[in-house]
Design a protein around this nucleic acid. Sequence first.
DNA 1: GGCTCGAAATTGTGATCACATTCGACCTAG
DNA 2: CTAGGTCGAATGTGATCACAATTTCGAGCC
Lengths: 241, 241
Amino acid sequence: MKRLTGASAGGKAGVNGGDEPPETQTIVGLTTHEEVYRRLREQILYGGIKPGSAVTLRGLADELSVSPMPVREAVRRLIAERALLLQDNRRVMVAPMTRETFEQILFARRALEPELAARALAKLTKSDIAAIEAVDRSIDTAMRAGDTEGYMRANYQFHFAIYRKSEAWTLVALVESIWLQFGPFMRMAYGRIGTSTIEDHHEFAISAMKKGSAADLRKAIDADIGQGMGFIGEAVLSRAG
Amino acid sequence: MKRLTGASAGGKAGVNGGDEPPETQTIVGLTTHEEVYRRLREQILYGGIKPGSAVTLRGLADELSVSPMPVREAVRRLIAERALLLQDNRRVMVAPMTRETFEQILFARRALEPELAARALAKLTKSDIAAIEAVDRSIDTAMRAGDTEGYMRANYQFHFAIYRKSEAWTLVALVESIWLQFGPFMRMAYGRIGTSTIEDHHEFAISAMKKGSAADLRKAIDADIGQGMGFIGEAVLSRAG
DNA sequence: GGCTCGAAATTGTGATCACATTCGACCTAG
DNA sequence: CTAGGTCGAATGTGATCACAATTTCGAGCC
């Protein structure tokens, strides 16, 4: 069972966790709900929580050994970002995917992500590109090993390492929200199909970055989106509407 | 001073407000924080809160005669939607506008909103169009009267009456988040320039809807965005970077 | 034996308290 | 008169309690 090591800044009212010395090795300066948020966000993004499965405030609180309060705030935030869905029963779950939602996410990604990559292009240094290449190699490794979560983490890093270089924070935030919404389904898709059949458009993207060609980079990103989302579409939406 | 009339569903622990009979005329079924959220959202969207001005949890709670708790959740949600900004001091304010943010919002609007309108086109009935025309007339009225807030409300209604008809909820949610981010600046812009000089692209949009021409509708919406955002750009960003 | 109804447990929501940090005003020293 | 410092008020964060609504599960009835 994971636990949030030690208390962070802010009010430490009431009894302490108990068995740990104060001032543990946690990254200080973060509020507890922020830490809970990041942890949940990762779990959702990399498929740790299956779509349709419900989460409860007290359950998560126990799991992370914190009080329900910071969990409430983290969950509320994730609901606002559409990573979680608040049902009419006021219960919280990972949102299921419909064909319509899927299609809209695909459109939004194609509209925003190639642009983001193009904006990043001018600001990419040699060492940035080298780092991105390294990430791409770890994608290949994970892919060949059949390590789905590793693949997803690396794939996320690959894309956002580029996008963040654009320094277009407003757009990056929009795209991150979109990724949160289809993350769980990526996991389902690769869990069903496997990672071995993925064709790699990242090579084209990297060579486009090296050439400094915005048009080629847009094309590569767009192709990558189309293929990745195609997988999800086939695997997840084949039977349901 | 506004107040949230009566208590809503959910725990009513401790002493009651005091002076009101139970079961007041409020819309029941809504949680308190949801109601607070909508109220704050409106204030932000229509410029009731000036950019850069700070809001406090207890301040808002007193203003609405609720406990700080639902305000916390509402504010947290608005922060996640980027309508409010959590500073390093952990204080909350309406986000200021920078040239970069402005430019990104403009891009995202142009990428998403014409598409949304085009998707709505097929589902628009005669009566829908008539209703939208009525909203457009109220825009004219407010414009001539110099009623900035009325103009903004009606303008918002005009756009989202169309967009919502697309039933593309995922995309609509993205666009709503974007509108929340530039709402306050629209108010500033019109407060400075006035509403009288606004050219009306809505007529073109309406005639495009009547003709059923998706291409024309896209063009009209795009032109409307360009003009509206141009106003904000000139008025708000003329001096600051 | 399958179904229904009711009691107990679980869950989300709101209120209140506790505390560390930060902001602001007032005061004092130069 | 200005700059620096100190103390009090205000604020965000987390914990705990209270309560209504929903869910869950087991006992009783047909």
